[in-house]
C-alpha cells in the first residue's frame, strides 16, 4: 500500500511536573489527516500533583487497512503518567493492504510511565507493523504490559511485524523484532496464539517478591516477563503486572 493513501491519526500526550507543586501539567493533542480517521483520543481520568491517569479511547473503527496510528508520549523529569485502555484492539482483515501502529515514548529522569495495554488481536488477513521506540533518561522508569493475539478464535494468524527498541541513557536495553505470521508462528512462538509480556525498565523488582517464572533479567538491568499460550487466558501475566505496579509505586 502506498504511504500517500494512509490515514494518519496522531495522538500526543505530554506530562510535566508543576514546578510549584500543584497538579501536574497534562497536554494532549490529536491530529488527523482527514475527518474520517480513526484514532485514539486521550481522556484524562485522574490528575493530581503526583501523577496523571489517561485513558486512550478509540474513536472510529480500529484497526483497518490504511490506518496509521501514531502515539507520542513524553513524561518529563519527575512526572508520572499512567496510561490505560478501555478495551482491546482488533486489527481486521486488510485484504492485501496494511496498517501501522507506532508508539514513541520519552521518559525523563525520575519520571515514571506505566502503560497497561489491553489485548492487541491480529485477525486473519490483517497485516500490521507495530513499532515501539522508548527512550529513557537515566533514572526513568517504564512499566509496560501488552498482550498480542495472533488470530481470533478459530482463525489463522494475521501478519504482525512487532519491533521494539528500548534505550536507557542512550544505551540499548531491549531490541527485538518479531516477524509473526502463519509461516513463522510455529517456530518463533511454538504455534501459540497468545504472547503476553510485561517490561520493567529502569527499576528492578526486589527478590523474593519478583515472580521468577517467565522472567528474563535483562543484561542492562530491568526485567521482561513473557508468556505464551494456545489461548489468551493461558498466557496471562496479571500477577506479574500487579507486582510491577507495586514496585513502581
Amino acid at each position: 500500500m502506498l504511504t500517500s493513501t494512509e490515514r494518519v491519526g496522531r495522538t500526543r500526550i505530554r506530562v510535566a511536573a508543576d514546578p510549584d507543586g500543584g497538579r501536574c501539567q497534562v497536554r494532549t493533542a490529536t491530529t488527523a489527516s482527514d475527518p474520517t480517521v480513526a484514532m485514539l483520543r486521550p481522556v484524562v481520568v485522574h490528575h493530581d500533583a503526583a501523577a496523571a491517569r489517561v485513558s486512550l479511547v478509540p474513536e472510529g473503527a480500529l484497526l483497518l487497512a490504511g490506518d496509521a496510528i501514531e502515539i507520542d508520549i513524553a513524561v518529563d523529569r519527575g512526572a508520572r503518567l499512567d496510561l490505560v485502555e478501555p478495551g482491546g484492539t482488533v486489527a481486521f482483515d486488510m485484504r492485501g493492504a496494511r496498517a501501522r501502529w507506532d508508539v514513541r515514548i520519552r521518559v525523563g529522569a525520575g519520571a515514571v510511565l506505566t502503560w497497561a495495554g489491553e489485548p492487541f488481536v491480529v485477525a486473519q488477513g490483517a497485516d500490521v507493523s507495530r513499532r515501539l521506540e522508548a527512550r529513557l533518561d537515566a533514572g526513568a522508569t517504564l512499566a509496560l504490559s501488552e498482550t498480542l493475539v495472533l488470530g481470533r478464535h478459530g482463525e489463522r494468524a494475521g501478519r504482525l511485524r512487532q519491533s521494539t527498541v528500548v534505550t536507557v541513557a542512550g544505551l540499548p536495553l531491549l531490541v527485538e523484532d518479531l516477524p509473526l505470521d502463519v509461516t513463522t508462528v510455529p517456530g518463533l512462538l511454538g504455534g501459540n496464539r497468545g504472547l503476553s509480556s510485561v517490561l520493567l525498565a529502569g527499576q528492578e523488582v526486589a527478590e523474593p517478591s519478583a515472580p521468577a517464572s517467565h522472567r528474563y533479567d535483562l543484561d542492562a538491568g530491568g526485567h521482561l516477563w513473557r508468556r505464551m499460550g494456545a489461548e489468551v487466558h493461558e498466557s496471562t501475566l496479571a500477577d506479574v503486572w500487579g507486582t510491577v505496579r507495586q514496585t513502581v509505586g
Binding site: 519491533s163 527485538e176 523484532d177 517456530g187 511454538g190 528474563y216
Partner: peptide, 18 residues
C-alpha cells in the same frame, strides 16, 4: 554498525533455553 544488527527474537527458543 551495532544498531543495524538484526534483532529477530525467538520466544520459543528462549523458553526452552531457560
Amino acid at each position: 554498525v551495532p544498531d543495524r544488527i538484526p534483532a529477530v527474537g525467538c520466544p520459543q527458543i528462549e523458553v526452552w533455553a531457560e
